[in-house]
Design a protein around this nucleic acid. Structure first.
Lengths: 209, 209
DNA sequence: CTATTATTCAAACGATCGTTTGAAACAGGT
DNA sequence: ACCTGTTTCAAACGATCGTTTGAATAATAG
C-alpha cells in the first residue's frame, strides 16, 4: 500500500473552514471578519461567499464538520447502553459525554473547536440554536427519552433546561480536559478519572429535586 | 423616616450601564452596538463617549459596577474561613462561590450580568482579562494562597489554570442557579443543595492529581 | 484544439461601526 | 441679569463590515 504524500493538500473550502474555526475561537463569530479568515486561509475574500454563500452558512459548516461525527458516535454509544438492562444514569451520561471528550482530543483542531463550542453556548445565538436543533435535535431527544427512564419524576421541559446548562458547563470543562490531556499523555488513567468527575457532576445536577 | 419616591430616577450613566449590560448579555460585546445601547437607554449616541470615553471603558464599568461588591464580600468570607482552624477545602470554595451565587440572585439584573460573565469567560478577551487581573487579581491571589494550604502538592500555576476553568464552568452553572431560584423561591433548602453540588464539583476538580 | 464550466481575483457596493465635532440647552453661583 | 461649566444633541468623520460584480484564469469535456 503506497504511503500518503508527506505534504497534504487542502482545498480552498478546507482552508477556509480551518481558518474560520481558529478565528471564531479567538474572536467570536461577530468579532472575526471574513477578511481575517480569508487572509489566514490564503484565499480570496470572495471565496467565502462563492463556496458557502454567506458568513452564517460558513459558521454552520464549521459546526457540521465536527458535530456530524460526534452525534453518530453518541447514537451508537446510546444504543449500547440501551441494550444493557443494568445500565445506570451514569452510563447514559457517559454515552453523552465521552464522544464529546473525544472531540476535544482530536489532534488537528479539536481543542480549538471546543472553544468555539463554548462560545456558542455563551452566545445563546438564536439562528445557531435553530441549526443545532434541526440537525441534531433528534439525538438529544433520544437521550432525554433514556434519561427519563432513570428519572421518571423529572418533567421533560425541566430536563431539557438542565441538559442545556450541563452541556454548557461541561463544554467549558472540556477545554480543561483537552489541555490536561495535552500536558500528560502517559496513560488513559487520568483521562478516565477526569471524565468520571464530569459524569458525577452532571448526574448530581440531573438528580437534584 | 420618609419613604423613598415610588419612581426612582436613573441618571444617564446608570441608564447606559443598564442597557449595555442587557445588550451585552444578548449579543455579546462586539455584537451589541453603541447605537443599540443608547437607543435602549433613551440617550444620545454621543453620551457613551462623553461619560465613559470609549466602548471599551463602558464594558469595564459594566463589570466594575457588580464585581466591586462581589470581591469585597469574597474577601470578607475568606477572612472568616481563615479564622477557623477546622475549615476544609470545601469551606474555602464556599467563600469563593457563595458571593458569586448571590450576585445571580440580585433582583435588578443579577441574572443578566451572570450571562455577561459567561460570555466574558468564553471570549478569553485579552483586554478584559487584563482589567480583571489588575482590579481583582489580589483577591484571586489570596484564595490561591488559602487553597494551597489545603492542596500543598498542587503547583500554583496549575491551580490558577484549574481555577480559571472551574470559574468558567461555575459561571455557566450559575445561570441555571439563578433561573431555578426564580422558579421556586419557597425556601433556602434547594438553593443550599445546588450550591453544595457546585462546591463538591469544584473540590473534585481541584483535588484531581 | 474548442467549448463549457468551475474557480479565483481585484474592485467596488451600501450598510454599519466607534468616535468626533460644534453648537444648543441646561445648571448653579455671583 | 450674566457668566461658567456641564450635559445633550444632530450631524458628520473615516474605517471596516458582509456581499456583489464582472473580468481573468484554471480545469474539464467533447
Amino acid at each position: 500500500m503506497p504511503q500518503a504524500a508527506s505534504t497534504t493538500f487542502f482545498s480552498t473550502k478546507e482552508r477556509i473552514l480551518g481558518a474560520a474555526e481558529e478565528l471564531f475561537a479567538q474572536h467570536g463569530f461577530a468579532g472575526a471578519s471574513l477578511r481575517q479568515v480569508t487572509a489566514n486561509a490564503k484565499v480570496n475574500l470572495a471565496a467565502v461567499n462563492y463556496h458557502f454563500g454567506s458568513k452564517d452558512n460558513l459558521i454552520e459548516e464549521v459546526f457540521r464538520r465536527r458535530l456530524d461525527n460526534l452525534n453518530e458516535r453518541r447514537v451508537q454509544a446510546l444504543q449500547r447502553v440501551k441494550a444493557d438492562p443494568a445500565a445506570t444514569l451514569e452510563d447514559v451520561l457517559a454515552a453523552f459525554i465521552h464522544p464529546a471528550l473525544d472531540v476535544s482530543l482530536d489532534s488537528s483542531g479539536g481543542l480549538t473547536f471546543v472553544r468555539v463550542l463554548a462560545r456558542a453556548f455563551a452566545e445563546h445565538n438564536e439562528r445557531l440554536r435553530k441549526f443545532l436543533s434541526e440537525n441534531y435535535g433528534h439525538v438529544l431527544k433520544e437521550f432525554v427519552s433514556e434519561f427519563s427512564r432513570h428519572l421518571p419524576d423529572l418533567a421533560k421541559q425541566e430536563m431539557y433546561a438542565r441538559l442545556d446548562i450541563i452541556s454548557g458547563a461541561l463544554t467549558y470543562a472540556m477545554t480543561d480536559f483537552g489541555v490536561i490531556q495535552r500536558r500528560d499523555d502517559s496513560s488513559d488513567a487520568h483521562r478516565q478519572r477526569s471524565a468520571q468527575h464530569l459524569i458525577n457532576f452532571a448526574a448530581a445536577g440531573l438528580r437534584a429535586p
